[in-house]
Amino acid sequence: MAEQVALSRTQVCGILREELFQGDAFHQSDTHIFIIMGASGDLAKKKIYPTIWWLFRDGLLPENTFIVGYARSRLTVADIRKQSEPFFKATPEEKLKLEDFFARNSYVAGQYDDAASYQRLNSHMNALHLGSQANRLFYLALPPTVYEAVTKNIHESCMSQIGWNRIIVEKPFGRDLQSSDRLSNHISSLFREDQIYRIDHYLGKEMVQNLMVLRFANRIFGPIWNRDNIACVILTFKEPFGTEGRGGYFDEFGIIRDVMQNHLLQMLCLVAMEKPASTNSDDVRDEKVKVLKCISEVQANNVVLGQYVGNPDGEGEATKGYLDDPTVPRGSTTATFAAVVLYVENERWDGVPFILRCGKALNERKAEVRLQFHDVAGDIFHQQCKRNELVIRVQPNEAVYTKMMTKKPGMFFNPEESELDLTYGNRYKNVKLPDAYERLILDVFCGSQMHFVRSDELREAWRIFTPLLHQIELEKPKPIPYIYGSRGPTEADELMKRVGFQYEGTYKWVNP
């Protein structure tokens, strides 16, 4: 592979701008107003304001973009700056750019259920340069409990009458099928589907988006991507930290609602779906819905739930269990780990287990898709061969690698495990991989909904998990304890083995 010439960040961002501006969906010269509902909250200060700053800094926003914060707290732009700027990672050389960014910011205080507050917000936006005809993007960085009041008031008082209007809704989209349907029906009564952007930030990850290209742009994968060759698929999300004093919020939802029903299920769809007619948003989402419709409700015998306990040999936070978090209700049975087996009941995947695993306070930070292939028929190497695996590593250190057998150097035919490896950090030294939120917010500006969740996708996802969630809430089974920093409950490994996964433990990928 030829040595790549190092590029400056300015040059890299210039390439990104060229890609972005050559499309006809990006209205570079139009006025846009980006409204952050819930501007005083954690999500706004840690993710949304920093993301908008990065896009502005790199010249990736339309030229005439204004940012308006809205929340109940009586704040000023200076207050917003004070709480969000520490997350910007701005350099001293960017000081003038930073001043320009905050000059485009404003803030309006108001209630979430008060019509007069929204009329005041609308008047404020109209007073901005060309504000009355601007395109408006409303980001709901809010708890779902206020979605209905907020969307109703936005629709009645704050819509642009000339430009387009788009609304970005953060997960969780309800707690179960019934609450999700209620919320979807409410929002759909106010906005068209092409105006609604239900954001799952995992769909903005580079390697998640790469799944489609790997599958449908490489001839070698087509013939082997089926039940005849693939023994099982494992989708993993692991965090090495616990709730760390923020367990009160987590306890309301648990690990299945927080990660599995959305992030992991979306990745499953991209692995299992048929080739779409095109890369058009609805063509892709149509195929994802077909996959979900082929999955039956989760069966309790295919589920393992766990909850982390303190590690007596650990240090600091590792010595504390979930129930030691003062914000967690006493005696909570909320799971911090889950392993679930699903089956896609169609011709391509009949009988292939899709194993979804996620948890907190585990032994490493990792998100990946792992396809394990069947054993080689007619073994001539005296059971020395391990199964081939194709691994798409989402985070950290984005990579695609194939675990395969090669001859060990020497005189004899002794096979050993090795890999074919594409590590993004080595291959793409001159490429700026956008943060997931950067990519998705740019998608909203461009009107691309491919990486957002459609209402029928959402409904099918909740259909699969709601009976299990209701059973857990009714019966309150005690989750299996696992030690902070471990791989999780051993019962999860036993479940995976029972459905056909072979864990060798003899080879570990190392970032080159």
Rank of each mutant, 00 (worst) to 15 (best):
E3F: 07
V5E: 15
S8K: 15
S8F: 05
R9W: 10
T10Y: 12
V12I: 14
V12Y: 12
I15H: 10
R17I: 09
E19M: 10
L20I: 10
Q22W: 10
Q22P: 08
D24G: 15
A25C: 15
F26R: 10
H27Q: 13
Q28K: 12
Q28Y: 14
S29V: 07
D30K: 15
H32M: 06
H32G: 07
I36G: 02
I36S: 03
A39R: 04
S40P: 08
S40R: 00
L43I: 05
I48F: 03
Y49W: 10
P50F: 00
W53S: 01
W53G: 00
W54C: 07
L55F: 05
L55S: 10
F56P: 04
F56R: 02
F56H: 06
R57M: 04
R57G: 06
G59K: 09
L60D: 02
P62G: 09
P62H: 08
N64H: 13
T65C: 13
T65L: 10
F66A: 08
V68G: 06
V68M: 08
G69E: 01
Y70I: 08
A71I: 03
A71F: 00
R72F: 04
S73N: 06
S73A: 09
R74C: 15
T76N: 13
T76P: 06
V77Y: 09
I80V: 11
Q83I: 10
Q83V: 13
S84G: 10
E85F: 08
F87W: 13
F88Q: 05
T91C: 12
T91A: 15
T91V: 15
P92T: 14
P92Q: 11
P92L: 11
E93I: 11
E93Q: 14
E93P: 10
K95E: 14
L96R: 12
L96G: 12
L96T: 14
L96A: 12
L96K: 07
K97N: 06
E99N: 15
D100G: 11
D100V: 10
D100Q: 15
F102R: 07
S106C: 10
S106T: 14
V108D: 02
Y118C: 07
Y118G: 05
Q119W: 08
R120M: 13
N122Y: 09
S123P: 00
S123D: 15
A127E: 14
H129G: 11
G131C: 10
Q133L: 10
A134Y: 08
L137A: 12
L140N: 05
L142A: 04
L142M: 05
P143C: 06
P143A: 07
P144L: 03
T145C: 05
V146H: 05
Y147T: 00
E148Y: 08
V150F: 00
T151C: 11
N153A: 12
N153L: 13
S157R: 13
C158T: 15
C158V: 13
C158H: 01
C158G: 06
S160T: 12
Q161H: 14
I167E: 00
I167G: 01
I168Y: 01
I168F: 06
E170L: 01
K171D: 02
K171M: 02
F173Y: 10
F173D: 03
G174M: 01
D176T: 04
L177G: 08
S179E: 09
R182A: 13
R182L: 15
L183A: 02
S184E: 01
N185Q: 13
N185A: 13
N185L: 12
H186R: 12
H186C: 13
H186P: 04
L190I: 14
F191T: 02
F191G: 03
F191K: 03
E193T: 03
D194L: 07
I196V: 15
I199C: 05
D200M: 01
D200R: 02
H201K: 01
H201Q: 04
Y202I: 02
M207E: 00
M207L: 12
V208E: 04
V208L: 15
L211N: 00
V213W: 09
V213S: 11
R215D: 02
R215E: 01
F216P: 04
N218Q: 03
I220F: 13
F221H: 08
G222H: 11
G222M: 12
I224K: 03
N226I: 05
N229H: 12
I230T: 05
A231D: 07
C232V: 06
V233E: 01
T236P: 02
F237T: 08
F237V: 12
E239R: 02
E239G: 04
E239Y: 00
T243P: 09
R246H: 02
G247Q: 05
G247F: 07
G247M: 06
G248V: 01
Y249I: 04
F250H: 02
D251F: 03
E252P: 08
E252G: 15
F253P: 02
G254K: 04
I256H: 03
